[in-house]
């Protein structure tokens, strides 16, 4: 690691102030940032720990919306949304392993926007909203490509709002060593629409598979996507799977998620 200062503010206002310094970086649970620092892939002047900020905690249903505090750990999301939002609970319960789930946070994951992170698929499928210390950002504007989001320097994710679906599910084809999805698909069914969020597949990061959303809105059944075709163009390709393989998995995982939705 390169040298950095460390600050642990007790309030959101204090954190925003601390992040005004050039190259200051917010630190959530650190489950991605700390390995990144160890590899010397990042050189922040200062880390601002968000751990002690009460405003970033709490998971609560507010009418037909689920509000998750940005500092909520994956473990807390898995436990506290189980009876409210089955797909999100399932997703959180399979991120990393128990020790990682006790530290890693939803806000941290969404701010990092790894192209194979799980939460972006849920946020995209539900067309949820990222709430920051200054504004609200719709999912489709929020994600802007690999490790890139609409967040400005020093902007902090305070909460994430998910419109609660009637049915939902998440299916990921795991890379077994890391448990990151080779391809992950989140399906959310509402009264008047269906959302399909795909992670791990595209070179541009998470995307909504709009053809499937339209087909499933008319008939919420796995066979509704039978006639659709996912192009391998623009899909990621690495030693774990070719672009063609990932494109194939998008459809397979979508069908499995629809079949398993509850």
């Amino acid at each position: 690691m390169y040298a950095f200062e460390f600050e642990r503010p007790g309030s959101l206002d204090a954190a925003v102030k601390a992040l005004q310094e050039e190259d200051a970086q917010a630190l959530g649970g650190g489950q991605t940032l700390i390995p990144t620092l160890k590899q010397r892939l990042a050189m922040p002047s200062k880390l601002v720990s968000l751990k002690g900020i009460a405003e970033l905690q709490g998971i609560a249903q507010e009418g037909d919306v689920l509000k998750v505090g940005g500092g909520s750990t994956h473990g807390a999301v898995a436990r506290e949304t189980k009876g409210i939002f089955a797909g999100l609970s399932l997703m959180a319960s399979k991120i990393g392993d128990p020790a990682v789930r006790n530290r890693g946070t939803m806000g941290g994951s969404l701010a990092n926007n790894d192209p194979a992170a799980c939460y972006p698929a849920a946020l995209m499928a539900t067309r949820g909203t990222v709430v920051t210390n200054t504004r609200e950002i719709a999912a489709e504007e929020y994600f802007q490509g690999l490790f890139t989001t609409a967040l400005e320097e020093g902007e902090i994710i305070t909460s994430i709002r998910f419109p609660l679906p009637e049915k939902s599910n998440y299916q990921k084809f795991e890379q077994p060593a890391s448990r990151f999805p080779l391809v992950g698909v989140f399906v959310a069914k509402y009264g008047d629409r269906v959302g399909v969020g795909v992670t791990g597949a595209s070179e541009d990061g998470v995307f909504a598979w709009k053809e499937a959303e339209e087909a499933l809105a008319g008939n919420f059944a796995p066979e509704a996507v039978d006639d659709l075709w996912v192009s391998a163009e623009g899909m990621m390709s690495d030693l774990h799977g070719t672009a063609e393989y990932r494109a194939h998995l998008v459809k397979v995982m979508t069908k499995r998620a629809v079949a398993a939705a509850e």
Binding site: F6, Q31, L47, D97, A99, V100, N102, R103, S178
Partner: peptide, 22 residues
């Protein structure tokens, strides 16, 4: 880097990877 679990300790009774935290 948080994959093997050999460094697991309990913080406030909750298990975490000691290598992945400052």
């Amino acid at each position: 880097h948080g994959q093997c679990g050999a460094c697991t300790v309990l913080v406030g009774g909750r298990r975490i990877n000691a290598c992945l935290t400052l």
